Simulated scan of single mutants.
Amino acid sequence: MDTVEILARLVAFQSVVGTPNAAIVDWIRTYLEGLDIHVTVLPGPEGDRSNLFATIGPRDVAGYVLSGHMDVVPAAQPNWSSEPFTLRRETGRLYGRGTTDMKGFLAAALAAAPELARANLSRPIHLAFSYDEEAGCRGVPHLLARLKELCAHPLGAIIGEPSRMQAVRAHKGKAAARVTIGGRAGHSSRPDIALNAIHAMSKVLNTAVDEAQKLTRGPFDLVFEPPYSTLQVGIISGGLALNIVPDNCRLELEARGIANAKPEELLAPVRRSAEILTQQGFSVEWTPLSVYPALSLAKEALLATLLEEITGRPSLAAVSYGTEAGLYQAAGIDAIICGPGDIDRAHKPDEYILEDELDECRRTILALAMRCARA
């Protein structure tokens, strides 16, 4: 099967984040096992989602990981020009949910797999495909926790998020959380005997806004846009009717930290402002939603040099979006981003990838295999 055929199969699986993914995992496993490639399916604690890990070459020798996620964001937007889970081919473009983010990379790796299997690699190439990346990299930590039993410690991990096949050495870390405040309902004519959860949440919101403003004053890392850590509230909801004192309010927020900042610590002042409300009779629940660390790989790192050589392009200092790369680095594995497509096309109606981008990605993977064959 060629890359486009494989991509069509992958896009057809509606592997939306947070939903069961057995169908796509089983298809990939069957395809790879048909090439006599060793595959391990790693069920997650959710019970209905799994990671997949495959090794081409010797498992007891240090090699390279090609990392990607199988999940996609929902495709509920009404203005798709065609069915989002059916690949549409038009003048060099391949349309469908996940084509760029990031089933295109998976398809290129799987299309290269037959040649990798015949290459008699001295160093292995591993395929590490995860679930629920779009919910804050929830699947890959379970894969990394079992990596020691799957292979020798890797030399590096290439995370195939869309980067126009230019290697990227850094991104910010992220932490997200939900704050839920419970008050006491009542008629709006007697707010004095009720506890207004929305009014109480305004104190939390003000703290979040103040902290976000403080972060604009530094510290700075000029490789990022913006060059400082950020904090923002994305969702706030509460109340049932105007004449009812609301007894519940929910707020969701995130922080994105530059390389030396811990994003969960950036949220700490907001959490403290919420927990103080318990002294006024409110219930407060703080629920972490996701967290992943920043990526920071030195320009002179061997992995960065390798990617520059096999792509023929200089590496890029940083991008604004986050990936699983920081988790690999936190596990002691050098990591870098390099994949086909453009992040600006992701998470939108009529998401697409170029056939030329898929071809370039496949050629790059084969160039990596040539290095592993003569290592």
Rank of each mutant, 00 (worst) to 15 (best):
A112K: 03
V209E: 12
T323F: 06
S202Y: 11
V73H: 07
N248R: 15
A23C: 07
A318D: 11
E211H: 13
L110T: 03
Y95S: 02
A177Y: 08
P246K: 13
G182A: 15
R362F: 01
R164S: 14
D356A: 14
L277Y: 05
G281M: 01
F105D: 02
A255W: 05
T311V: 06
R138V: 08
I236D: 05
L297P: 02
L368V: 02
L66G: 03
A346S: 10
R313H: 15
L297R: 01
H38G: 00
V245W: 09
D350E: 13
S283W: 03
A175V: 05
S290G: 02
G57C: 10
R345C: 06
T3H: 04
R256M: 05
A259N: 01
Y352R: 01
G322V: 10
P124F: 05
S237N: 13
A54Y: 04
D356Q: 14
C151Y: 08
Q279V: 05
C361G: 04
L94D: 14
R118I: 05
T19K: 10
D71T: 08
A304P: 00
R371N: 11
K203A: 15
P219W: 15
G182R: 15
E161W: 03
P78D: 13
F13L: 10
R250L: 15
T55M: 10
T55P: 05
R88L: 12
D210Q: 12
R88C: 11
R123A: 14
A294H: 00
L366T: 06
A335P: 00
S81T: 15
S273R: 06
D221W: 02
D36F: 03
D2I: 08
V17Y: 06
T278N: 13
E264L: 12
G322I: 08
R271L: 02
T19D: 07
D356L: 04
E275Q: 13
A128H: 03
Y31N: 08
A76R: 01
E46M: 07
E308R: 09
G238K: 07
E161G: 04
A145G: 07
H142M: 11
A298W: 04
E134S: 03
T91C: 12
G139K: 01
T99V: 05
E300T: 15
L307M: 15
Q14H: 09
L116F: 02
P43F: 13
S50T: 00
F105W: 06
T180M: 12
P74M: 06
P84C: 09
E275C: 06
F224Q: 05
T216D: 02
E225H: 12
L106M: 15
K299R: 09
K174V: 11
L307N: 06
T86M: 14
L306E: 09
P263R: 07
A185M: 06
L289A: 09
C372H: 05
P246Q: 14
G44E: 12
R59H: 11
V16R: 02
E134M: 11
R345G: 03
R362A: 10
V65R: 01
T3Y: 02
V284R: 04
T100P: 00
C249K: 10
R272C: 10
F224T: 00
